[in-house]
Amino acid sequence: MSARTINFTLNGQAVSTAIEPHRNLVELLQRFDLLGARESCGQGLCGCCTVLVDGVAVSGCLYFAVWVDGKSVSTVEHLDADGALSNVQQAFIDCGAFQCGFCTPGFVLMTHQLLKDCPDPSDEDIRDYLAGNLCRCAAYPEIIEAVKRAAKAAT
């Protein structure tokens, strides 16, 4: 039950830490002062805790921290590592696709994943893919617009 040492790549950098098995990925990221992934509903439904593990989106609140041992973890903070916002982040700003901003990193990361899988998404594709991201401020109409704008910007 004691902490174990894990080695993984975090936003492009090799890192190492000791952590107990009962802690989740959001808690692990907090140790590295990465706060963009937030546990809110705690059930994988709201998407506020979205993190990429080996390039695939997971709910950080439903993912054991020790499972990233040997893997590559990427968070919202990595999107502007080169100093420039990603096209998705810019589209979210341009379309006013958020209010309080608490769920926004999750929506942004999921939109990147959506556009990777489906570069020119229909409304139906957007609705299906973002079904697991909730926004209590209900900026959904603006979010749909932002996804389309980001898709257009990428082509």
Partner: peptide
């Protein structure tokens, strides 16, 4: 105009009490 704090919000760096340690 976009809200003044949009950059902080899309990059996950906006300050919330939730994060305070």
């Amino acid at each position: 105009i976009p809200r003044l704090e949009v950059h902080a919000k899309v990059t996950g760096r906006a300050d919330y009490t939730h994060h305070l340690r």
